[in-house]
Design a protein around this nucleic acid. Sequence first.
DNA 1: AGCACGCCGACT
DNA 2: GTCGGCGTGCTC
Length: 733
Amino acid sequence: MPKVLKIAVQAPLRSVFDYLPPAGSDPDTLRPGVRVQVPFGPRRRIGVLLEIADSSELDPAKLKPVLAVLDPEPLLSADDLALLTWASRYYHYPIGEALALAFAPLLREGKSAAPETVRVLCPEGPGAAGAAALVKRSPRQAELLRLLWEHPGGLPPAILAGLDGGKHTANALVGKGLARWREQAAQVAAALPAPAPALELNPGQTAAVARVLEALGGFRAFLLDGVTGSGKTEVYLRLAGEVLARGGQVMVLVPEISLTPQLEARFRARFPAPLAVYHSGLAAGERRRAWLAMQRGEASILLGTRSAVFMPLRAPGLIVLDEEHDASFKQHDGFRFSARDVAVMRAHLLKIPVVLGSATPSLESLHNVRQGRYQHLHLPERAGGAAPPLFRLLDIRGQRLVEGLSPRLLSEIGQTLGRREQVLLFVNRRGFAPTLICHACGWVAQCGCCDANLVIHFGEDRLRCHHCGHEQALIRACAKCGDTGLRPLGLGTERIEAALEEHFPEARVARIDRDSTRRKGSLQQLLDDIQAGRVDILVGTQMLAKGHHFPKVTLVGIVDVDGGLHSTDYRAGERTAQLIMQVAGRAGREDRPGSVLLQTRQPGHPLLCSLIREGYAGFAEGCAAERAAAGLPPFGYQALWRAESAEADRPGRFLAGLAESAGRMRAPSLQVLGPVPAPLARRAGKHRAQLLLQSPRRGELHGVVETLLDAVPALLAGCRVQWSMDIDPVDVY
DNA sequence: AGCACGCCGACT
DNA sequence: GTCGGCGTGCTC
């Protein structure tokens, strides 16, 4: 029996495929982790060699040989493969697709992983003086020759391109045997000189650093719990320094691309070590370069977003994941992994520590602390002894509001501006108003292909659907009765911005949301303006709550907290509390504590009260008790099936079939909830439904899911839908 | 997912 | 007579 290659082929199929070694090759030289090209049905596909086996369950005559082995050395180590195999199993996602997503896009497509080279020009032949005599009549050649002998190591293309007729002159010299081209490995990003000194640590930071350092060289998970400004980043930097000194690599993950530049700046200023940045905003070539630099160990610090969690590491020493509560760590389509949970599993498999940082930890992580799985590290309130912000509820019941702003909030804004301090207003909705309604007949502008209202974008004179690509010109007359009394209903950032400009004509108002920051670099420009004091009032969405710090802001207004408290999503409370605390964290500085005003019509709401009286920790405790009583995560486990189709009845029928199969299984702890229409029952012309499976026993839930996946093909026959299955869902939409 | 094959309506 | 609609089945 010849050797059989077990290959994870890039295809949405849950099995591994068997192939024969490529014709005329020695299978003993092959190693798991190399990419291969294989025949797959009528086409060719890229796959990854997982294992070299002695036999196949299939008839060997039916096996085809691999067409090509793409890498001389494995790109993924046994550890990398183990992690991806685990993730593929845990999330029930096809192994070939999961593996493909671990590669930089160019490598996924089968492009070369060979080290990049540049062609440099080197001097050759008689020495400088002798050669000069040979080109007396060509001044350009003579000049280049002089340059060459000054740099006998070779001139890179960048310098040659800067010379008049550089390439031409160079080739002339090569023709005369006075120079030659040489392929040379491209330089990895050069190290920076003069690292910035480390900051002084306060006792809390010192203790946190010490606890993690004790754990280096083995697995341990830490929850680093510290409010904004408590100096979490300095803790990361200290830990990174120690790991680098021991020759290890450090992986640092953040939830959003926009958070990488500031962190990159701090790491680069501190460490001369080569650093790689990896996220989907980079060009394909840059991503490949960063990926290979980490894989080969040429870079020792990795800064990335969730897609970086699978990057191969040559000498892994530490994983840091900042803002661990952030839902962006969960992939929302395709391979729906949680980068936070994968990071913890990866640290476990690699036997290294992982540090999860947050000012507002997720209930999951707090639960893991209670269970003894994570160690809780607290940082004192604020580095430098700044006072925490003062929270106040503003009861707006019966108040006369100016575009949603109460007289009290407006007067406090005025006072703050009078002191030449900045104000931040948080409105969790972009656009002018979320609804356009006819005052005469009650007609509401709706999206033709979603169950959603069109949002008014006054500035651009458009109506937009925030759920599909649809947009149209803003209409002046009711589409139903023709009346011209159309009114905006509800509040968005644009409307608040306009109201403030009207009310405080002297103030400079900046709006920060996805619309105002769409252009590349515009967010940075706005942040710079705020930093430099060229802005008096900031109005924005949750973009304001993420990472950026505004030390000149002393008043934070949350225009409408009630919206976040009354959602059908059981996580809405947790998210609202995190958002409030994160936005509040932007306010105040060492010499002047910030003030946070929350406008509400329910000043007695238990969530709000506990958050304000006891802080986030107290709130989280109460919230966890409610979850425990209902068996919700983190006290129960969930798998969410989604289905959609242009045909209204299909998603429900498909999911009902699954629900029925689930009900027939022997799984006493399993709760089958649904199928029900999705919260957005129609989106982009597709009808959507979902089915939630829940169980306090993870193993039982996953067993059911596995069986149901086997039943999918039969259910799909005669009821075609687009479907997906989401393990540990964080969003139900 | 692609991409084949395969069996029924409106057209150069 | 075909071109092409998408239902069905397969990929080691």
